[in-house]
Computed example of a mutant assay.
Amino acid sequence: MEVKDIIARTNAFLVEEFEVAPESITPAANLKATLELDSLDYIDLVVVIESNFGFKVKPEDFQGIVTFQDFYEYVINRLEQKALV
């Protein structure tokens, strides 16, 4: 899967799951603020990631994720790791 496809797929499920305007999701935007995430929303986000991309997410994985770009890079790296196994 190409990077642009991963980003498009990620944005599509974020828009649907968190009911945000697609134009509000930009690489530099703050993930937590844009999606208005609280602790329960993080659980929803983990479930959506796992079901869409087929890898397990640990809560500590989110500590370094601030922007959507950070989030994309996380997903891309995890998919690359999964492909190597």
Rank of each mutant, 00 (worst) to 15 (best):
M1E: 11
E2T: 12
E2L: 15
K4F: 10
K4V: 11
D5A: 14
I6G: 13
I6W: 15
I6L: 12
I7Y: 07
A8F: 02
A8Y: 04
R9W: 10
R9E: 13
R9V: 15
R9Q: 15
T10E: 13
T10Q: 04
N11R: 06
A12R: 08
A12Q: 07
L14D: 08
L14M: 14
V15S: 07
E17P: 06
E19G: 05
V20H: 09
V20L: 08
E23D: 14
E23Y: 07
E23N: 12
S24I: 14
S24V: 11
I25L: 08
T26C: 04
P27W: 14
A28Y: 10
A29P: 03
A29H: 04
N30R: 05
N30T: 05
L31I: 11
K32A: 11
T34K: 06
T34S: 13
L35P: 00
L35N: 01
L35D: 01
E36S: 09
E36G: 06
E36K: 03
E36M: 10
E36I: 12
L37C: 01
L37S: 00
D38C: 05
Y42Q: 01
I43N: 02
I43S: 11
I43W: 00
D44G: 07
L45W: 02
L45R: 02
V46Y: 05
V46Q: 04
V47M: 14
V48Q: 09
I49V: 12
I49E: 06
E50G: 01
E50M: 06
E50Q: 07
S51F: 12
S51A: 08
S51K: 15
S51T: 05
N52A: 12
N52D: 13
N52V: 08
G54C: 03
G54Q: 01
F55Q: 05
F55N: 05
V57N: 00
V57C: 00
K58G: 10
K58E: 09
P59T: 04
P59C: 03
P59Y: 01
D61S: 01
D61R: 00
F62M: 01
F62R: 00
Q63M: 10
Q63D: 05
Q63H: 11
G64F: 03
V66C: 03
T67R: 06
F68H: 02
F68G: 01
F68A: 00
Q69G: 04
Q69I: 08
Q69R: 09
Q69H: 11
D70G: 02
D70Y: 07
D70T: 03
D70R: 00
D70K: 00
F71N: 04
E73N: 14
Y74Q: 03
V75L: 08
I76Q: 07
I76A: 02
I76G: 03
I76W: 08
I76R: 10
N77M: 15
Q81S: 05
Q81R: 13
Q81M: 14
K82F: 12
L84G: 15
L84K: 10
L84R: 11
